[in-house]
Computed example of a mutant assay.
Amino acid sequence: MQVNLHRSAPLADTDATFDDFLPEALQRRSPAALVDIGANLTHASFARDLEAVLARARAANVDALIVTGTDLAHAEQAVELARRFPGLFATAGVHPHDASHWDGALAAAMHELHRLPEVVAVGECGLDFNRNFSTPAEQERAFEAQLGLAAESGKPLFLHERDAGRRMREILRSWRDDIVDAVIHCFTADRDTLYGYRDLNLHIGLTGWICDERRGHHLRELVGEIPLERLMVETDCPYLLPRNLPAKLKGRRNEPSLLPWIVREIAHWRGDDDATLARATHDTARAFFRLPAGDGAIDTGHAQLKES
């Protein structure tokens, strides 16, 4: 299913759905503005109530969203969303799962997308040796090509890596002088990998993975070792619903309005307060993606949520 992006397409009634999806216990407003650097809003689960999703994000004090483009179709959809809604911006790339589709035509299409002002990063691209939906050789070929596009466009990289840290670092090291900035999105790796990325002066994106008591323990020990000026936050919605929520949510869909709960968890394990972490990651994200000043997600006029 594809999201209908025509400007006149009917969306669910915002007033009817704004409060219905989130129980009051989950309606948390960040004490300082946030940027969600990884929101998969082109996912079919957002087609029904996208305006309400954005209204809830704004009420939670999330003032900018980076909509992830993981292939040509979704990158084009992300661009259309960025054109439609103030405060939304797009990335454009080919995920390593789809690297086998990389060819000259796709490279040319990505090149054109990277020229658009709505596109603020090249990616999601990188290496995933965990599932190998595309072979490692195909992944490396597509990744190197997209590194070239990033060097040509001068835009930062939005990177995916899983079980491929050593090879990722080797490739990035050879390109580091040619690319401006790069963020490892949804970082879940170990200390050695983290310090390897630190040595390359990369940014680190953290998600609700850290809220998961089943698998996030090692991240809780590492978050204090990420320089604050290199840290950004994201939901990776609709995936990775935080497990620190104090009330149950209908379904399992994550959304940007829940980002303050992720920030709260990160701040706790770093020994920071929520406001300090929010301000720092917000400023870092706006500088990293070169976002224009004064842009915010949809302001629907709904009542503000309680501050965390």
Results as ranks from 00 to 15, higher is better:
residue 241 L to Y: 04
residue 195 Y to H: 14
residue 233 V to G: 01
residue 204 I to G: 05
residue 194 L to N: 03
residue 196 G to E: 05
residue 208 G to Y: 01
residue 225 E to H: 14
residue 232 M to P: 12
residue 232 M to E: 06
residue 219 L to R: 09
residue 241 L to W: 02
residue 200 L to E: 01
residue 233 V to H: 02
residue 202 L to H: 13
residue 209 W to I: 11
residue 225 E to S: 13
residue 215 R to F: 07
residue 226 I to V: 15
residue 201 N to G: 10
residue 224 G to T: 06
residue 204 I to Y: 05
residue 212 D to M: 08
residue 234 E to N: 06
residue 242 P to N: 02
residue 223 V to A: 09
residue 204 I to N: 02
residue 232 M to N: 11
residue 191 R to D: 13
residue 237 C to K: 02
residue 238 P to N: 04
residue 195 Y to D: 12
residue 232 M to V: 15
residue 193 T to G: 09
residue 208 G to C: 04
residue 227 P to M: 01
residue 224 G to L: 04
residue 207 T to K: 03
residue 227 P to T: 00
residue 194 L to C: 04
residue 239 Y to S: 10
residue 233 V to D: 00
residue 214 R to L: 13
residue 234 E to I: 07
residue 193 T to K: 03
residue 224 G to R: 09
residue 238 P to L: 04
residue 224 G to D: 04
residue 208 G to F: 01
residue 193 T to F: 10
residue 205 G to R: 10
residue 208 G to P: 01
residue 221 E to H: 14
residue 198 R to N: 08
residue 240 L to R: 03
residue 223 V to R: 08
residue 202 L to R: 09
residue 191 R to A: 15
residue 220 R to W: 08
residue 201 N to E: 12
residue 208 G to A: 01
residue 216 G to W: 04
residue 214 R to A: 15
residue 234 E to K: 05
residue 218 H to R: 15
residue 206 L to Q: 02
residue 202 L to V: 06
residue 236 D to G: 10
residue 222 L to M: 14
residue 242 P to R: 00
residue 240 L to Q: 04
residue 215 R to N: 13
residue 236 D to C: 12
residue 202 L to K: 09
residue 196 G to K: 06
residue 215 R to P: 00
residue 198 R to K: 12
residue 223 V to N: 07
residue 192 D to I: 09
residue 221 E to L: 14
residue 231 L to W: 06
residue 239 Y to R: 03
residue 239 Y to K: 04
residue 219 L to F: 12
residue 203 H to W: 14
residue 194 L to I: 02
residue 227 P to F: 00
residue 238 P to A: 07
residue 232 M to G: 10
residue 235 T to Y: 06
residue 203 H to P: 07
residue 232 M to Y: 13
residue 218 H to T: 13
residue 225 E to Y: 11
residue 229 E to R: 12
residue 229 E to L: 02
residue 236 D to P: 04
residue 201 N to V: 00
residue 197 Y to W: 13
residue 229 E to F: 05
residue 223 V to E: 08
residue 236 D to A: 13
residue 226 I to F: 07
residue 222 L to R: 10
